[in-house]
Design a protein around this nucleic acid. Structure first.
Lengths: 207, 207
DNA sequence: ACCGGTCTAGACTGGTGGTCTAATCCTCGC
DNA sequence: GCGAGGATTAGACCACCAGTCTAGACCGGT
């Protein structure tokens, strides 16, 4: 967890650190990013940095969180209060997903950062980072899932954790495939909606 | 790629190196594994090791390959030549998947190794490892996919690469969920078959 | 016997993340 | 106004890392 001291540091330097760290992590991934380079780039001393953060992965977690929050802020939040049919539920999810994807497409550095996060997740140093971010996103996902099950859009014959894991993995795989393959622009909407369709197929309740 | 010299080294030492490396990688993951520790454990000198392998990730690729081959050897190969209906195709896949999973469950070190590989994949050092292993598995997957499409079991309205990526990600997510959550033994068959069912739902051709 | 290439040992390099101590700053109580 | 003492900073230092390099051992062919 980020140490308390960081809140007191002047905004300018805080922003400088976050920006330099984002750049470094986005460019080199977590493991090949150099803390020393970030220090050098921002003129921060090691003592100060270790006063602000518990270590490299802590800084990484903080930066990812800040960037994710910024991404979320730029996207119309998902509103499921008015959806009462399965079709409405799934199409609301699809538009939300499309929004997120296009926001990501507009912020390549953020996208690189997220890719760095995905690439490093699973490594042991990332476990507490994962946990921290899960507490940020997990409840939201669980609520979406519960809503979907409530209106009969999502199956409820399997453990919620498994459903979330599978859905997340599918989304991740689709994202990276779309990002790296970069199909012709004309094909993109069809591919994205078909991809969401796959998730729906896997998760929807069957009569 | 592994250097030619390694083939000439005595079997005993070769096995010692592979075994020590497996242990190290399985225990610490790729990034936190220490080449020096492997050298120390096997009494190999740095000069020799770098004579055998191009570096840490090269050794890792070799070890993963050896272990994977061993896993495959212990499992009845997938035979799709006699399957002509979609149901037969999917059930053949399901039994094969179950075989693999139980073989993995019986060899925890191998499982740890594979988890280490999955965790590290995506990192930049792993790219050539990925490529090497993909040339080992990729054609097989493509052939399974093509067979499935041929008999109308698998959809063909999306790019093969996307289908493979999604199926692989789903399998991975299910595997890790099953491994880490370790549900009661009684539930395992139901969960596995339901999981395969999810993959089928996402990928099967619809009338 | 000796020559030449192959293999081995391990010191060495430039880098890493993280720790530690000494100094400075800054905010309080007085 | 000023001094004490905790919070903050600087950066030397540590153990360790993957990878390079050189000097020599080994060994088969002539």
């Amino acid at each position: 967890m980020v140490r308390s001291g960081f809140a007191k540091v002047p905004v300018a330097q805080r922003r400088a650190i976050v920006s330099a760290a984002t750049e470094e992590f986005a460019a080199h991934g977590f493991h090949n990013a150099s803390l020393n380079r970030i220090l050098e780039a921002t003129g921060t001393s090691k003592g100060s940095m270790y006063h602000y953060f518990d270590g490299k992965s802590d800084l990484f977690a903080y930066v990812v969180r800040v960037e994710l929050e910024q991404l979320m802020r730029g996207v119309e939040p998902l509103d499921l209060t008015t959806t009462v049919t399965a079709d409405a539920f799934w199409s609301a999810l699809a538009t939300y997903y499309l929004d997120l994807m296009s926001a990501l497409r507009a912020a390549p550095q953020l996208a690189a950062m997220i890719r760095a996060w995905i690439a490093a997740s699973g490594t042991s140093e990332m476990q507490h980072v994962q946990k921290e971010l899960e507490t940020m996103i997990g409840p939201w996902m669980q609520q979406v899932l519960a809503t979907g099950q409530g209106i009969g859009a999502v199956r409820d014959d399997l453990p919620p954790g498994l459903l979330i894991a599978v859905a997340g993995a599918m989304g991740q795989a689709i994202d990276t495939w779309l990002m790296t393959q970069a199909p012709e622009a004309g094909d993109l909407p069809r591919l994205t909606s078909a991809s969401i369709g796959m998730i729906r197929r896997a998760l929807e309740a069957r009569p």
